[in-house]
Design a protein around this nucleic acid. Structure first.
Lengths: 221, 221
DNA sequence: ACAAAAGTGTTCCTCATACACCCATGT
DNA sequence: ACATGGGTGTATGAGGAACACTTTTGT
């Protein structure tokens, strides 16, 4: 018994203070005209993570930025009407900079806010939901939020990521203290912003930490 | 391009206060005579989770107990010398009760402590290591430790699970308070132990919670 | 009586929250 | 001068760590 194996990508970014996912509109059946996650077949001599990175760069034109991790594998026998297809889903987090719809061969691509999604092809709604939930949970105990930010960012930018992903406001003063005092989360670059309203802010870059001690917990009312 | 798809199982339990994994000795090449994770091919009309549950019951003779969750998918092109095989790994946690090596067709099965493992076939050492790390991390914020316990257990039993998985001693008094005061973690059955040394202990069963509020964090020295 | 394990109370200290307050810039 | 956002100080309270202490059994 053999299977077809694909990778599908949950690509998230922050646009206009909202968490958005990159979706493509399918040009061919099945689910012609419906939105779907970007993805494609794994090549014969390709590792799964390689395939995911390749699809990501094909869809966004970017390479080597942000964050890419395996999300889970979906293989229900009836998930694809064309046959037995197992898909390995990956979660990618990117800063907003990339052109929303880059050089992709597959119809048009759009960023849609995850709070207001259309129905999706295949089981992609469940996959996307799992991806969003993973991102929400990982912000608490990993420095993943920096993957949504450009190479240099302010603490307010970082707080904006948390507020967008969690859909909850955070106290700017306490957030500042927590972010800067958590070892390895962010490291100052020495630069500052200018030309905006208010006092200039220090710029930071990603720190070396792979997890957050102590974690940045969501409020639990 | 098509692939073979297997499920492999990281089956963990607590035996003699040590975290142990169920391994089988391979009877045929490749890696003949080496230890490997139990697993097998996904059947044509089977969901991935079904395949994992089937393999688990085939290996242990048990069904519907403990905990089974997807761990990750491993698909490096060279991971199996026989061809392109993608494996979906599952993590299973069981109480010690089951017969160590049950009615399995695949050579002999043994419980080995994860602290002292031989080298394993394929990439199974990496998969097992990921499984152990997942279990260690999930004990903090999920009630998963109860999956290692029989239907009724004492708080000391539960503490023994934490101490075995984390390889660290915990304060019995503080652990007792935390476990019993975390909503939904454990619920008293009204029964008690007897016939052992010391004061009898209350018996508990799994509570309804799916995560722990607040979490039970490891010490961070 | 003593040992052993269960379970409770108490102290101390850390850390999160809430918010008052000062700082540095654009208009 | 004033609005706007950046950043610091501090009082309060909840919760964790450490441990003295009481309870209930077996030997």
């Amino acid at each position: 018994m053999t299977f077809m194996v694909t990778v599908d990508l949950v690509i998230l970014t922050i646009r206009r203070a909202a968490l958005c996912a990159l979706l493509i509109r399918r040009a061919i059946p099945p689910f012609e005209g419906a939105f779907a996650l970007p993805g494609g077949f794994v090549l014969p001599d390709e590792d799964l993570a390689e395939a995911a990175a390749r699809e990501l760069s094909e869809e966004t034109g970017l390479t080597g930025v942000g964050h890419l991790e395996q999300l889970g594998t979906y293989g229900h026998p009836a998930r694809d009407p064309r046959g037995r297809v197992v898909t390995v889903a990956y979660l990618a987090l990117l800063p907003d900079a990339p052109t929303p719809t880059a050089g992709t061969d597959a119809a048009d691509a759009v960023w849609l806010p995850v709070s207001d999604l259309p129905s999706l092809a295949f089981d992609h709604a469940a996959i996307l939901s799992d991806g969003v939930e993973r991102a929400r949970a990982k912000l608490e105990y990993s420095p993943l939020a920096t993957a949504f930010c450009p190479p240099e960012f302010t603490i307010a930018d970082l707080r904006g990521v948390y507020e967008a992903v969690w859909s909850a406001p955070l106290d700017p003063r306490n957030f500042h203290r927590k972010a800067t005092s958590t070892p390895g989360f962010v490291t100052p670059t020495g630069h500052s912003t200018a030309g905006e309203r208010g006092r200039p802010a220090q710029l930071f870059k990603r720190g070396p930490a792979t997890f957050l001690h102590p974690p940045l917990l969501r409020a639990t009312p």
